[in-house]
């Protein structure tokens, strides 16, 4: 009979299939960075990029873009959070500053993290922030109040049809996860 060759054939095929399975399991995790890289390149998820530099930026005085600011406080976050102005009309390329404020209404120290999002998504690539509180976490003591500046410019290459964009900030309470992290590093 051909039993032994049958067995080794089966083994070979099983190893290959297990290889595919292991590969696909890892692929699921690889999707996470792939997703972020893809969104970063195309800007389709409304995610803004990290800190930008304001150097040799050309200002387009021929048109103006309206930018609106939206703030949301997540459930379980006892802070007031908002912007001093609700919208601005700016020239593409010009450096602007908006002031945001945050106040910790609770009796505890709380760490906050804001997450920005731009709509329409394709405009995210053209919104450059040179200074933003969203780059770091904010620690506010009980009752503490701060003003936070945000400086940005809109790239002059922004498509003609985008005349209005919304920058939204969602504020999260990350006190617990910061605690566990520092506990882990100790």
């Amino acid at each position: 009979m051909t039993e032994p060759t049958q067995n080794s054939d089966n083994k070979k095929l099983v190893y290959r299939l297990v290889g595919i399975i292991g590969g696909m399991f890892l692929f699921a995790f690889a999707l996470v960075p792939l997703y972020n890289v893809f969104c970063d390149i195309t800007g389709i998820n409304g995610k803004t990029r990290g800190q930008a530099l304001y150097q040799d930026v050309e200002i387009d005085k021929k048109r103006q873009v309206t930018i609106e600011f939206l703030t949301n406080v997540n459930r379980g976050m006892p802070w007031d959070f908002g912007s001093k102005v609700k919208s601005m009309v700016v020239y593409p390329g010009e450096l602007n500053e908006v002031r945001f404020f945050a106040k910790n209404r609770s009796k505890n120290d709380i760490v906050g993290q804001t997450v920005p999002s731009v709509s329409p998504g394709e405009a995210a690539l053209y919104l450059n922030k040179t200074e933003c509180f969203c780059f770091d976490q904010q620690v506010l003591a009980a009752g503490e109040e701060v003003e936070m500046p945000m400086k940005f410019y809109i790239d002059a290459d922004i498509p003609e049809d985008v005349t209005r964009l919304t920058l939204s900030y969602q504020l999260f309470n990350v006190t617990d996860s910061v605690k566990t992290e520092s506990a882990a590093t100790k």
């Binding site: 590969g23 692929f27 699921a28 995790f29 999707l31 996470v32 993290q113 996860s177 992290e181």
Partner: peptide, 26 residues
């Protein structure tokens, strides 16, 4: 099926081990 296994594994670590695969705050 391995991708599903990966998804629920990420959920598990998000829930208990401090990762933030699906948590916008992190």
């Amino acid at each position: 099926m391995p991708v599903l296994a990966g998804t629920v594994t990420m959920m598990l670590t998000d829930r208990h081990f401090g990762t933030a695969f699906f948590d916008a705050a992190g």
